[in-house]
């Protein structure tokens, strides 16, 4: 896969952010603004899962635990500590990094499907703990009473439009940061541990340590996705930490594609559109969603993003060979 250089990625991120801001500042469409907020939350989460699963070969069934943890940690910090939003965000990042370090030390030693199982078990444990820690988390009813959103730096996140702008900003920043991770030397090492762990170890790479690092990085970004969701619904619910969140993440990256960096973003867009569109018209969304998945999984046999990329490169190859043929014929 081609990776952009740091400066080009930075420039691209800045341009996209500028365009997004320009677009969003003119709109008064509430549905669009809600969509952007939810998209930011889901896309950051999905891209972080792809960092782990696609680039690191660690298929986590429990990545949602960090999404839920981020939402709870952030909302609780805002409710109890009375700090400003950026402080709470930093605190959530540190908190989830710590949790990921503890869980990760145990998980990353396991390979393949066993890694998936143990992450799933941890997710269920975290979920069970949230339910059991009633006085702190509110148990199954979730964290009630709203998440306070005091203004900071002239930003008032109680205002939907400003929250939307803020989400777009976080989305671009997180995507840029994750892109930087995968295109860095660390990203290359991570891919090597995925493709051939034995050879990597032979070359003197501490495989488990690399995997642990990736696990923590992915968890941090997942928690940012979670805290955006907490800002959106002004609360936190045990569902955020349930295995279904991990399942949805897997679905999103498969839908969008795991071999392109922006595949999960595309998958998130498709998933949200699909969900919103289908649930407007039928209660049998399982049937509709399931059929779409089957078509994508068995028809394309890869994510939509991968499919498009492959198709484009196949076409340019075809063009190239066509050109060679013409030149040959001409000579």
């Amino acid at each position: 896969m081609r990776a952009l250089s740091f400066s080009r990625a930075l420039a691209l991120a800045a341009i996209v952010l500028g365009l997004l801001f320009a677009l969003l500042s003119t709109t008064a469409n509430h549905a669009l603004m809600d969509f952007v907020i939810r998209l930011a939350s889901l896309a950051i989460f999905a891209t972080s899962l792809n960092l782990l699963a696609g680039y690191g070969g660690m298929v986590s069934f429990g990545h949602g635990m960090f999404y839920g943890f981020g939402a709870y940690f952030f909302a609780l910090t805002m409710q109890r500590a009375g700090v400003s939003i950026p402080v709470a965000i930093v605190a959530s990042i540190l908190g989830s990094a710590l949790l990921a370090a503890i869980v990760g030390v145990i998980c990353v030693r396991l390979k393949e499907i066993y890694f998936s199982f143990v992450t799933l078990a941890f997710q269920m444990l975290i979920h069970a703990t949230i339910l059991a820690a009633m006085p702190l988390t509110g148990g199954d009813q979730g964290l009630r009473g709203g998440v306070p959103r005091p203004p900071f730096l002239g930003l008032n996140l109680s205002n939907q439009k400003q929250l939307c702008m803020f989400s777009a900003f976080l989305l671009i920043v997180c995507l840029f940061a994750m892109h930087h991770v995968v295109s860095s030397p660390f990203g290359a090492t991570l891919r090597m541990t995925r493709d051939n762990a034995d050879r990597a170890a032979y070359l003197g790479i501490a495989v488990d340590r690399v995997r642990l690092k990736a696990f923590i990085i992915a968890a941090v970004f997942a928690s940012i996705g979670g805290l955006l969701q907490a800002l959106f619904v002004s609360g936190a619910y045990p569902d955020f930490a349930y295995w279904t969140v991990s399942g949805e993440g897997i679905f999103v990256i498969m839908l969008g594609g795991t071999t392109t960096f922006l595949g999960p973003l595309l998958g998130s867009v498709l998933m949200l559109l699909l969900n919103d569109f289908v649930s407007r018209f039928t209660e049998y969304h399982g049937l509709a969603l399931g059929s779409v998945i089957l078509v994508v999984a068995l028809g394309l046999r890869k994510g939509v993003g991968d499919f498009v990329v492959d198709w484009l490169s196949a076409r340019s190859e075809a063009d190239a060979s066509e050109r060679t043929k013409t030149t040959e014929a001409a000579s």
Binding site: I250, G286, L287, G290
Partner: peptide, 18 residues
Amino acid sequence: PLMQILVCYALILIFDDL
């Protein structure tokens, strides 16, 4: 394996609704 999970997930959704 991700593909396998996805197909199974789709089957669960479809059959529960059926």
